[in-house]
Nucleic acid binder design. Structure first.
Length: 612
RNA sequence: GCGCUCGUAGCUCAGUUGGAUAGAGCGUUAGCCUCCGAAGCUAAAGGCCACAGGUUCAAGUCCUGUCGGGCGCACCA
């Protein structure tokens, strides 16, 4: 069913048609203090063709416009045409409608996390994981089928250095410490070692052993440790793709063979690129001093970007042949698959074959990502080039310092999560002791603290635009009041408590008398009705921050309504004390709000605790 | 130098496809629990939307330039 705004848009456009002009009408909420609930500046657009002043046109539109159900009247306010909704009808529609999105035929692959398997995650990775995971949830809500992939760079230098360090220093894992932390310590020590330059041969040997796959088990142990951290953050995955498998499946050479045929690529015989295989990307990246990027080195080895190109081709279903098997099970019981040389062929075309690919990678990788997209264009796949999206986010600094995994500067993700939960737990217990509400069991308390702490962390990572640099500061990121997840969670808990209390007293939403609805409820329902637009916008701009801001709007609206006072200074909206009919209508609205907050936070991977 | 990106209240940030008087939070100040939970609410103070031009009936939003911050410009990943 078309939303009210859509109906209004069509009605205005039809009225404009009657006046002899066709336009694209914009419907917006009227600013506070202006008359009406929704309005349109459509008359401005008609002024030129109709050669009349906008105010006169608005008046004519007001006469001719056919009012959809729920709109009481239309009125010109100067050049604007404003609509007045019938509060009861509007609120009833909002309460009784649960917006859903039609199924989208396009499959979307979202790659995120992709942390080097050589040391533990730090706060910068938390931004990546929460962004990608939330984007996946939002795209699913918008009707797309989504496949979440995590790329394992198992043949990279970082992994080789960590594995070398363990052997070189004779380090022994105690079986207790988180394995990625253990490996990370060796890596940091190695990079602080003044003798490191003399280790090059040993590291190269390790790199070679990685390429043969004989050390895969050690890398898998690190990946398992990484996934544990990501699970704590609420992230979920469908498939792990290993670099060695991408190369082993021949995608690298297939991609290079295709690019070979393009006039954009060449093998310079002399100059600084003599012997290498290069691609001219000047058409895609204007302003580069050097238009050529190296794909294959003169010694025949592949640059990182070249491997990524083969992988991207596979994501779009242009290459086939990787084998897969189950890797592990996530906390919800869903299987996570992995590429593997001994896996089964993907005869069902279960993985890959995407119409759109979103790579969540920080902004420093913008150039290589452009090269990857450009290669699709060079190979004659402009549609896939266009739908190769680099969701780039600015890096995270830690208390003003640049994070360096090599030097070990920056907070570990596991520590941050622990701290966030700890802070929530402390406040939770303090409040429990100070109030008269029921004391929760230890398990329930821990679960509530977990939801609040992780929620606060995720929300802090998501609430502003990804393009903004984010300085991680403890008091700001783990704050439990203000523009935070706990603020929204708290509102949802209060809504749930009203419903619980009403049920205990035998009231239900049945028997609502919508004619008693007031302006206070109308304002609340208007915010709820924005949900579909919010999801659509978030998908369009590829950013969850739109959803996060909306969650705050929902909670603010609810809190404002909840605390509203009449002229006599007494509470104006107490549900249980409301007259029969209005009480039921308010109850239904409170339930709708609660559900909206739960659904909205759910898109951000944030759960609501049973109490706060 | 070139490319990308950001510049909105003391600080951290929203601001939809250009539309009516630019909004939050933190902090500051003053209030609100004898009616569903104060992690909450109400109010005050705080703005040349970096600057200068331009397009438009209309610009925080689009274009050009300038200034300032960040990032990137490897036969690293």
């Amino acid at each position: 069913m078309a939303t009210l705004k859509t109906q209004l848009k069509q009605a205005v456009e039809a009225a404009a048609q009657q006046l002899g002009a066709s336009i694209e009408a914009v419907i917006q909420e009227t600013p506070a203090g202006k008359s009406g609930d929704y309005g349109t500046p459509a008359a401005f657009l008609l002024a030129k063709t109709l050669r009349q002043n906008p105010a006169a046109i608005a008046a004519q539109l007001a006469e001719r416009v056919a009012l959809p159900e729920g709109i009481a009247r239309a009125e010109a306010a100067g050049p604007y045409l404003n609509f007045f909704v019938d509060a009861g009808t509007f609120v009833r529609n909002v309460v009784q409608t649960r917006p859903g999105f039609p199924h989208q035929p396009d499959k979307v692959i979202i790659e995120h996390t992709s942390v080097n398997p050589n040391k533990e995650l730090h706060v910068g990775h938390v931004r990546n994981v929460t962004l990608g995971d939330s984007m996946a949830r939002i795209f699913r809500a918008a009707g797309y089928s989504v496949e979440v992939q995590n790329y394992i760079d198992d043949t990279g230098r970082q992994a080789a250095e960590s594995l070398f360090a363990v052997r070189h220093y004779g380090r022994v894992w105690d079986g207790v410490q988180k394995y990625d932390h253990f490996m990370g310590e060796g890596y940091v020590a190695l990079n602080a070692d003044p003798e490191k330059p003399s280790f090059q041969e040993g590291i190269s040997a390790m790199l070679h052993r990685l390429e043969t796959g004989e050390l895969r088990g050690e890398i898998e142990a690190i990946v398992h440790a990484h996934l544990d951290t990501c699970f704590r953050l609420g992230a979920r995955y469908d498939l792990l793709n290993w670099e060695s498998d991408v190369v082993g499946s021949g995608f690298l050479s297939q991609a290079m063979n295709i690019l070979e045929a393009s006039p954009s690529t060449s093998h310079p015989a002399q100059g600084k690129f003599a012997g290498a295989f290069v691609m001219d990307v000047s058409a895609f990246m204007p302003g580069l001093e050097e238009p050529n990027v190296v794909l294959m080195r003169s010694d025949g080895t592949a640059m990182y970007a070249a491997k990524d190109i083969g992988y991207q081709f596979w994501k779009f279903g242009l290459f086939e042949g990787m084998k897969f098997r189950v890797f592990s099970t996530d906390p919800d019981g869903h299987e996570i698959w992995t590429s593997h040389p001994q896996g089964e062929p993907d005869t069902q075309r279960r993985f890959g074959h995407a119409a759109e690919v979103i790579n969540v990678i920080d902004t420093r990788q913008e150039h290589p990502q452009k090269v990857v997209a450009a290669s699709l264009g060079v190979a004659g796949h402009p549609e896939q080039e266009r739908r190769s999206i680099h969701l780039n986010y600015a890096f995270v600094t830690f208390e003003g310092q640049t994070i360096s995994g090599r030097k070990g500067v920056g907070a570990k993700a596991d520590d941050v999560i622990d701290d966030a939960i700890e802070r929530a737990a402390v406040l939770f217990i303090l409040k429990e002791a100070a109030s008269e509400r029921d004391i929760l069991s230890a398990d329930e308390t821990n679960e509530a603290a977990r939801r609040i702490g992780v929620g606060a962390l995720r929300f802090a990572m998501l609430k502003s635009e990804p393009t903004r640099t984010l300085d991680f500061r403890w008091e700001q990121v783990l704050a439990l009041n203000g523009d935070t997840a706990p603020y929204v969670q708290y509102a949802a808990v209060r809504a749930a408590n009203i419903l619980k209390k009403a049920a205990a007293e035998g009231f239900s939403p049945d028997g609502a008398d919508w004619s008693q609805i007031t302006e206070l409820e109308l304002e609340l329902a208007k915010v709820v009705s924005r949900f579909p637009d919010v999801v659509t916008t978030s998908v369009r701009v590829h950013s969850p921050h739109v959803v996060a801001q909306y969650a705050l709007d929902l909670a603010t609206a609810f809190n404002g309504w909840y605390n509203a006072r009449g002229d006599d200074g007494k509470p104006a909206t107490n549900v249980l004390q409301s007259p029969a009919g209005l009480r039921e209508a308010r109850l239904a609205l409170v339930e709708r709000l609660r559900a909206a907050m739960e659904e909205t936070l759910g898109l951000l991977g944030i759960e609501i605790p049973s109490a706060m």
